[in-house]
């Protein structure tokens, strides 16, 4: 007995949503790409978090390396060292990447990006054409590394005896204390006030306390940006002197096309423009290379701009 609720799913609708790809290759779309093409896409779309060589930045996932580390302390689990099926990587990139811009890579671009990740793991040569025809030919080193949940046999039986209640051990010693590591987050002693006053365009005197706050916020940016006398371009440009400077002028940095366009039309990084950019980078400048999600709090924007101001030219 059915309720007669809902309506038929149309073939176009199923095609739009049903993109999962199975370990046997079912669902792989037609297409191809190699590591050379993939390297460019990777640099543009992925490197801000995953590093130029898929080695990862900060806490962002490392996609390459870790071969033969799974039985060591702190194994490094990457696409190369850990993932059992390459179809999983295709499925995931197509479905969820690039981070913050999911589902925008074409099928060929996904093959190329994946080829670059495999190349970075030394699993294919740079001229290997990864395609729906060849994807299953790539041998995944950890393909045989998984067993199905065996807790019923290895754990449940031995942990089901009537538990001891008295004289269960003769002595107890403390062997480790959390206080020694001291990694528990501490509450801010003075809760961060969020000043509503002082709109951004009012030119105020430089505020060292605010700049110090901004230095903390700048930690979010450090993976990609350097600032100061010895700063170098990383996946983002040097930020020394950026406040009040024209956009797109850092030498040796390869800007995105949309940024070059707004720079040519005369964009100046005023405090107001910077704040708008920082709030929602991808909304402010569609196609920007900056993969940062944004600083929602106006107090954070103000603080970081004050910090940037402390590194004038």
């Amino acid at each position: 007995e059915t309720f007669g609720l809902g309506r038929p799913a149309l073939p176009e609708e199923i095609a739009a949503w049903d993109g999962d790809i199975r370990p046997d290759g079912t669902g792989l779309p037609k297409g191809s790409g190699d590591a050379l093409i993939g390297e460019e896409i990777f640099a543009e779309q992925c490197a801000a978090c995953h590093g130029d060589f898929a080695e990862g930045i900060g806490n962002w996932p490392k996609l390459a390396g870790g071969a033969d580390t799974l039985d060591h302390d702190d194994p490094l689990k990457t696409v190369g060292s850990y993932w059992p099926y390459l179809t999983t990587a295709y499925d995931y990139i197509k479905r969820s990447m690039p981070y913050g811009n999911a589902g925008t890579l074409s099928d060929d671009e996904v093959y190329a990006t994946l080829a670059y990740i495999l190349y970075s793991n030394d699993l294919i040569p740079d001229d290997f054409i990864l395609s729906d025809e060849t994807l299953l030919d790539v041998e995944m080193p950890n393909a045989e590394g998984f067993i199905i949940d065996d807790r019923a046999e290895t754990e449940y039986a031995q942990w089901s005896d009537a538990p001891c209640m008295e004289k269960c051990k003769s002595a107890v010693n403390i062997t480790m204390r959390a206080m020694v590591l001291d990694v528990t987050p501490q509450e801010e002693t003075s809760p961060e006030a969020e000043p509503e006053e002082a709109p951004l365009m009012v030119t105020a005197a430089f505020d060292p306390a605010l700049a110090a706050e901004g230095e903390k916020v700048f930690r979010k940016c450090k993976a990609c940006h350097q600032i100061g006398a010895d700063a170098k371009n990383k996946s983002g440009p040097i930020l020394t002197g950026v406040v009040g400077s024209p956009a797109g002028v850092v030498e040796g940095f390869s800007y995105s096309k949309p940024l070059i366009k707004v720079a040519e039309s005369g964009l100046i990084w005023s405090e107001k423009e910077l704040a708008a950019f920082l709030e929602k980078p991808r909304a402010y400048l569609k196609g920007t290379k900056m993969s940062f999600a944004g600083l929602r709090k106006e107090a954070d924007q103000r603080a970081i701009i004050e910090y940037l101001k402390s590194y004038g030219n």
């Binding site: 059992p84 099926y85 999983t88 969820s96 998984f146």
Partner: peptide, 9 residues
């Protein structure tokens, strides 16, 4: 099973 990223890696 799909063996998706969240059930393998």
């Amino acid at each position: 099973p799909v063996e998706s990223r969240e059930e393998t890696s």
